[in-house]
């Protein structure tokens, strides 16, 4: 981890009519940090992620992502981030190779570079047998691992992962985290949401949102200490039950 801030959020407010979805959020995420963004359903996580990804305007407050402003430089933000969710990741009717060529093409990578990185990826993941298969024919675990590789194929500064491991088996879930650690080693910053509380403990720092506000922030150890809890599950329950 370095001291360079990849995400800076100051007093972020997002309103929908009378409803305040994000109520004065402030936080920073450092380069090569794994930042866990936790909260109950409806706490306002998705709203904040959309703003950080340049998909939605803040109502007020300052938001900088990868050095770009969330009001004026949304296209530059999009170029410098990666995104993956459980709900949507790859095109089922394209092969693994076609998916990668498609995404990398959108990000403007040259054919030569795409070819080179694709070969590296095939070697790293050991997917010689899978690369020309349709995505719909892959097991879910592989889909998720490949979707992550696609999300960081253009070497973004930060990658947003929205419940990336929902429903996958316990071994694949851990292999997925191995990929996350590797990405972090290479200098990518990871911003992740999850409902698995053991995964929350894999993060360097966590924030927990309750009703549109950040109620707690710190390392997993700090939070467990502060809330006198033996695991993150208890921290989460103590905080969210207060709401």
């Amino acid at each position: 981890m370095s001291d360079e801030n990849i995400i800076v959020v100051e007093n972020l407010v997002k309103k929908f009519g009378n409803f305040t979805a994000n109520d004065n959020l402030s936080f920073e995420v450092k380069k090569s940090e794994i930042f866990g963004f936790l909260g109950a359903n409806g706490a306002g996580k998705t709203t904040a992620i959309k703003i950080l990804c340049g998909l939605s305007f803040p109502t007020s407050g300052n938001v900088m992502v990868a050095g770009f402003d969330a009001y004026k430089q949304r296209n530059l933000i999009k170029k410098n981030i990666g995104y993956m969710s459980q709900g949507f990741s790859l095109y089922d009717d394209l092969t693994v190779k076609e998916n990668i060529e498609f995404y990398a093409g959108i990000y403007g990578l040259s054919r030569k570079l795409i070819k080179q990185r694709f070969n590296e990826l095939v070697g790293k993941l050991g997917i010689h047998d899978l690369k020309n298969k349709f995505v719909k024919d892959l097991p879910l675990g592989w889909k998720q691992k490949i979707a992550f590789s696609v999300a960081i194929f253009h070497r973004p500064r930060v990658v947003f992962l929205d419940e990336p491991t929902s429903g996958v088996d316990p071994i694949t879930r851990r292999q997925f985290w191995d990929l996350i650690y590797e990405a972090v080693e290479s200098g990518i910053t990871v911003f992740v949401t999850t409902h698995y509380m053991d995964e929350a403990e894999y993060c360097n720092r966590l924030s927990i949102m309750v009703d549109g506000k950040i109620e707690a922030m710190g390392t997993p150890a700090e939070l467990k200490d502060k809330y006198k809890a033996s695991n993150m599950d208890d921290v989460f329950v103590k905080l969210a039950r207060k709401a």
Binding site: G39, A40, A43, G167, A240
Partner: peptide, 8 residues
Amino acid sequence: TGVDAVSR
């Protein structure tokens, strides 16, 4: 599935 730890 996909429900937070408290609601679960």
